[in-house]
């Protein structure tokens, strides 16, 4: 009952919406790099939105269904195939016993895909979350990335319902990932540590994502952002999407596996609804930043929440 992994792929881990509630003990939040895609994958198969799903990075795994499953894959198009035939994303699909799922390679922009199964994946829960945090070796499947030979079980088998098949997100609602992304931000707690010119530089130029990019954070390179106060601050809280600028003037965006505190000046925070765009970016691509008000950012969060809620309420009916 579940799947067996033949090949783990580049970096395949179990994630959920993260380990919130313990940051005051230094417990790193982790969770999906693209929380939107993870939630949609779960909702498509009839799970609660925060169930654990498998996060697949760029080069996907090869795996076999050990029983009849209902799954959905969302996020980046990494070349999903079942038994050698292309299979659709953002859609509930059957994955029958003995079938092989593989990913033939990235066909478009975007980096991370999410594989959810009806009933949810069985995984290690710690501090109320299944998210894998590799550095401490906790959560997910034995605290590590999935590899050949691993067996993953399904938590509870729900009798399959035919109407689940072909349930899909309307194409208009499927996010498009582009190699240049406009990211909306709110200026950060240390905005007064920068010169006016520094802030303007940050908001009017494109920044390229360097290869120093992992689940903890991404370093950008571009025109130098100038400080008018020291670039080092007393270490204090950071969050997903906090943009720090050290003395070299090159921004660092903190991501899912970020440390809980940081000691560099914080110029801005990426708004919640744009965080998935960061998780779907890759080295060499560019980002540009524009500010929006807190009111507008929070309106967008609530709009997205309403949309997810709607999907949840209607999940037992065909769309």
């Amino acid at each position: 009952m579940g799947i067996e992994i033949y090949n783990g792929g580049m970096l395949t881990t179990i994630q959920d919406l993260g380990r919130m509630g313990y940051q005051s003990q230094g417990i790193v939040v982790s969770g999906a790099m693209d929380p939107f895609a993870l939630q949609i994958a779960n909702l498509l198969v009839g799970n609660a939105p925060d169930e654990p799903a498998i996060e697949i990075t760029l080069m996907g795994p090869t795996l076999e269904a050990k029983s009849d499953l209902i799954v959905a894959v969302t996020g980046a198009d990494l070349g999903l195939e079942i038994n050698g035939k292309p299979a659709p994303l953002w859609e509930t699909i059957p994955f029958r016993k003995g079938e092989i799922m593989r990913f033939s390679g990235s066909r478009n922009n975007g980096v991370r895909a999410y594989l959810a199964v009806q009933g949810g994946w069985e995984a290690d829960s710690l501090f109320g979350s299944y998210a894998t945090y590799l550095m401490a070796g906790i959560g997910g499947h034995q605290g590590r990335a999935l590899q050949a030979g691993d067996q993953l079980k399904v938590k509870k088998q729900i009798p399959s319902r035919k109407r689940f098949f072909h349930r899909k997100l309307p194409p208009a609602l499927i996010p498009r990932y582009t190699p240049h992304k406009r990211i909306r931000v709110m200026l950060g707690i240390n905005q007064d540590a920068f010169t006016e010119e520094g802030i303007q530089t940050f908001l009017t130029h494109s920044y390229q994502i360097t290869p120093r990019f992992n689940r903890m954070g991404m370093r950008l390179s571009g025109p130098k952002i100038t400080h008018c106060k020291p670039a080092d601050i007393l270490s204090t809280t950071v969050t997903y999407g906090t943009i720090q600028v050290p003395a070299n003037g090159q921004p660092i965006i903190l991501l899912a596996d970020r440390q809980t505190t940081g000691g560099y000046t914080q110029i801005a925070n990426v708004i919640t609804v744009d965080l998935p765009l960061l998780g779907q970016s890759r080295a060499g691509e560019t980002l540009s930043f524009q500010t929006i008000s807190m009111k507008e950012a929070q309106r967008l969060v609530m709009e997205q929440e309403r949309f997810l809620k709607q999907l949840q309420v209607h999940q037992w009916n065909p769309l």
Partner: peptide, 17 residues
């Protein structure tokens, strides 16, 4: 949702919902 005390500040995480 949680609050995080540091040297000279406390950060409160919440949902605007």
């Amino acid at each position: 949702i949680e609050w995080v005390p540091t040297y000279q500040a406390i950060t409160f995480f919440y949902s605007p919902k």
